[in-house]
Design a protein around this nucleic acid. Structure first.
Lengths: 188, 188
DNA sequence: GTTCGAACTTATCATTTGTCAAGTGGATTG
DNA sequence: CAATCCACTTGACAAATGATAAGTTCGAAC
């Protein structure tokens, strides 16, 4: 996990890593388990060392996937964690998972104590922002078929590990449409 | 500008602000002027104290607006600035503007010197991420008319200050469709 | 004041995508 | 093994949006 963090954020000195590591707790969850339910304030940063999860919202009773995460990956529900408001997103394990969890509150304290940990926070947020923007550009530029093809190229692992109906809502289309597009592709 | 920053990021002590302020340069630009052309690496963070700008990409020869910024606002092209790669986005003044500019390189140095400035960077990135994600959710949830109505509610100033054709591409629709939707609204 | 050009509107038709309903196949459970 | 459930597919039709083209309005330039 330290290696994963340093890969994104640059060197994290021993002293700062130890400070950080102290507050991590090991946690396991089974496939199908909801690690953050709708309406609960997000108070945790998950460091997923194994498995895969899906983040989703419910719109008019219909699930819409907003993110797929595959280990190793660090995630939270930032707008809930920062404001303390109930999360309008849920997180569900799609495989058996293992996490190192960290309380948001503790992280906020660590930010005060270490410029390196503060930097980890900045770099993570920057990376997430860039990723999120690239997703929005996908919607601006590409039609449904092209968005699917983009997924095939950039995130083939997601197509392998998650259900197609969830990929469909992630791409902003219905499962029926995704099914038709896939058929189209093979016939061409 | 200091007040604007502190509003987002919390207290910035005198010492740290002075360090930051030293490197800011005043810069003015006229309406219509391109402050960052396509293909040029972004090396600047603009602190817009007056005016309004538009950030855009060009897709198959067609301009698509990705962001509207209204003073006071801090912005850059993050993925270009961080990697040094040429920007695939351009920034154009839609009004006469005044900026305080800061070199990315200098900012990176300041990050090393002040945990408060590092924090400004983190908080800015977090805010941008949340905003960007909320934009993507708009595409996942809402059809074209609803996206327009969302803009009316959340960002009425943008509808006032920018051209409709640019709002249309920002919403992922053609100017003709936006025109039809607006007509529809009045007749209901 | 006139001319010109660009933004915006309107209309028609084509295309894409959604909705609803039914069918298929594979995995799980009893 | 049989029954069941759920993901996925397929088909027919409806609705939303795009493409093209023409018309209108308004402001800027001469």
């Amino acid at each position: 996990m330290r290696q994963y963090i340093e890969q994104i954020t640059g060197l994290l000195p021993d002293e700062d890593w130890n400070l950080y590591q102290q507050h991590l707790k090991v946690w396991k969850a089974k496939k199908g388990q909801t690690i953050l339910p709708l309406g609960k304030t997000c108070q945790t940063i998950w460091h997923m060392t194994k498995g895969a999860v899906r983040k989703l919202e419910v719109d008019n009773g219909i699930e819409k996937t907003t993110h797929f995460y595959v280990a190793p990956k660090i995630f939270t529900v930032l707008h809930s964690a920062l404001t303390g408001e109930p999360s309008d997103l849920a997180i569900i394990c799609e495989e058996d998972c293992e996490f190192l969890t960290l309380d948001i509150e503790k992280l906020q304290n660590l930010y005060q104590k270490s410029i390196y940990i503060e930097r980890v926070g900045r770099r993570m947020a920057e990376e997430e922002f860039i990723e999120e923007f690239s997703m929005r550009r996908m919607f601006l530029k590409l039609d449904a078929l092209q968005r699917y093809e983009y997924m095939e190229q950039k995130h083939p692992d997601i197509l392998m590990r998650f259900q197609l109906k969830d990929v469909a809502t992630f791409l902003g289309i219905t499962p029926e449409t995704l099914s038709r597009l896939r058929k189209l592709r093979f016939s061409v």
